[in-house]
Simulated scan of single mutants.
Amino acid sequence: MRILHLLASPFWSGPAENVALLAQAQRALGHEVTVAVDRKRRDIAAEEPAVPRFQALGLLDEGGLALSVKSPPWELWSDLRALRQRKVDVLHAHFTHDHLLARWGTPKGAVRIRSIHAPRSLRASLPEAAGYTVPASHLRARLEGRHRPVQVLPALVDPMFEPTKDRQTLRRDLGLGDTYLVGMISTFQESRRHALGVEAFATLTRHRPEARLVLVGDGALLDATRTLVTERRLTGQVTFAGYQQGPAFANWLQALDEVWILGLGNDWSARAAAQARACGVRVVAVNEGALPDLADAKVEAPTVDAVVAAALSGARATTEHPTNTLIATSVLDLYQQAAEARR
């Protein structure tokens, strides 16, 4: 099967890693798979670019698509013409720009699939597709009226996320003490609720005075979070690890005892929670996106008391997350269902 994923983003963030892992798993199952990304936007200093990543994985599509929301009308027309001439069996669109382009540019005979990665994309103006994926099971009902197959696309996890064989040495190498480590591993933005995390950690230390908070990431609210840590007199118990990627990020995650995920960004598959679970790290999470299916302890409301109660509960989930191969196989089944439904 020839599969082309459309991902109109220049960033290696949000759904990009999930798309890459899905494409790799589909390729491992014997299919021809490439991923087209935004090749126009290059001024992306604040985030890691997607092109080098997909290129290194051998997945980057070289079919001449600009695939950018910044494209002028003549460039969009060029993309439409190039797309119509492609010889593919499945056109899998991931963002709104991709879906609009695919709506008018799907090659003859190809099946058009749309992945929804966040609820804001579920609106009445959503273009028609032969099949859909959503990041969490509770969102399936929003598409039932379209009478097309709908499937949950869970977070896929890179094999490097696994329990460390020597946590004590790893912690020493990272400059961390051998104590109870709580972490938050996301961009510093409003939706991730770092301020709530700091306040909750301040309360947690009354019960676990030896605990330490590790904040991995960067972003607009980093300085504000540093200020809050200082105001709460937690400087000696909080580590700002900065932006981490690849094996370095996996190491920071492996060093933790527990991770708090108190909000999601533009990818509701809750990949960070799946990565943490794969590393043997306990997950405390709010009720957003796919987090309830991945959390060891659920935060019933985004309040300090609820976060602390979940953290102290000691609860552990028993469900296992599906493998990348199983997820890819399920998505391939969706393609088949969508193709058969058109006949």
Rank of each mutant, 00 (worst) to 15 (best):
R41A: 06
R41G: 06
R42M: 11
D43A: 10
D43T: 07
I44G: 06
I44F: 14
I44N: 11
A45F: 13
A45K: 12
A46W: 15
A46Y: 15
E47W: 15
E47A: 04
E47T: 05
E47C: 06
E48A: 02
E48L: 02
E48P: 00
E48K: 04
P49C: 03
P49H: 10
P49M: 06
A50T: 02
A50P: 01
A50W: 06
V51I: 14
V51H: 12
V51K: 11
R53D: 03
R53E: 04
F54K: 00
F54H: 08
Q55D: 09
Q55N: 10
A56H: 08
L57G: 04
L57C: 04
L57K: 12
L57I: 01
G58R: 01
G58C: 01
L59A: 01
L60W: 12
D61F: 09
D61K: 02
D61R: 08
D61L: 11
D61W: 14
E62K: 13
G63M: 06
G63F: 06
G63C: 00
G64E: 04
L65C: 05
L65P: 00
L65W: 00
L65S: 07
A66N: 13
A66E: 12
A66I: 09
L67K: 01
S68K: 01
V69W: 15
V69Y: 14
V69G: 14
V69A: 08
K70V: 06
K70A: 01
K70W: 04
K70H: 02
S71I: 06
S71F: 10
P72H: 05
P72F: 12
P72W: 12
P72S: 07
P73Y: 07
P73M: 02
P73R: 07
P73F: 05
W74G: 03
W74E: 11
E75V: 15
E75T: 15
E75W: 14
L76E: 15
L76Q: 15
L76H: 14
W77I: 13
W77R: 13
D79P: 08
D79T: 06
D79Q: 04
L80R: 14
A82S: 11
A82T: 09
A82M: 15
A82H: 13
A82C: 13
A82F: 13
L83V: 09
L83G: 07
R84A: 00
R84C: 01
